[in-house]
């Protein structure tokens, strides 16, 4: 099952992202949500989403840390990670590269852009098999 994980501590943003992606649910994609970094990490390990929209500024464990663990420590490199950062706060591109994120988007996000990216990744997922060993 193709899964997309939405991680943000703001319920409003989570719901908007869910709404943005709800068309995909009818196409058989499962949407998962997490409200902080720790929760996100355990969902990533257990549910293996192909795409994660990951807020950077979060309590407990921030997006950079989560991304770093996923990409560099446990080596789940085939998970596509989009970091979400608030407009106005400068995104540290160097850091983004370091932790292995695939892309970043600024909030307010553009719903069309988010949906297009999700479509692209889920379609790609359907055509390739998962290469990372199950942990």
């Amino acid at each position: 099952m193709t899964k997309i994980l939405i991680v943000d501590d703001e319920p409003f943003i989570r719901q908007l992202l869910e709404l943005t992606l709800e068309d995909l649910e009818d196409e058989g994609v499962e949407l998962l949500t997490a409200t902080n970094g720790e929760e996100a990490l355990s969902l990533i390990k257990n549910e293996r989403p192909c795409l994660v929209f990951l807020d950077v500024m979060m309590p407990k464990m921030n997006g950079f840390e989560v991304c770093n663990i996923v990409k560099n420590e446990i080596g789940m490199t085939d998970i596509y990670i989009v970091l979400l950062t608030a407009k106005g706060q400068e995104f540290d591109k160097e850091k983004g590269r370091e932790v292995g994120s695939d892309q970043y988007m600024t909030k307010p996000f553009n719903p069309d852009e988010v949906l297009a990216k999700a479509r692209e990744i889920t379609v790609r997922q359907l055509h390739t098999t998962c290469k990372t060993p199950i942990l």
Binding site: L16, L19, T20, P108, P111, D112
Partner: peptide, 20 residues
């Protein structure tokens, strides 16, 4: 709730557009 959310999303789309 989703219907309301959709309206909000429309507004949000505008906000995002205006920011860009």
């Amino acid at each position: 709730r989703t219907a309301l959310g959709r309206e909000t999303l429309e507004k949000y789309r505008e906000i995002s557009m205006l920011c860009d």
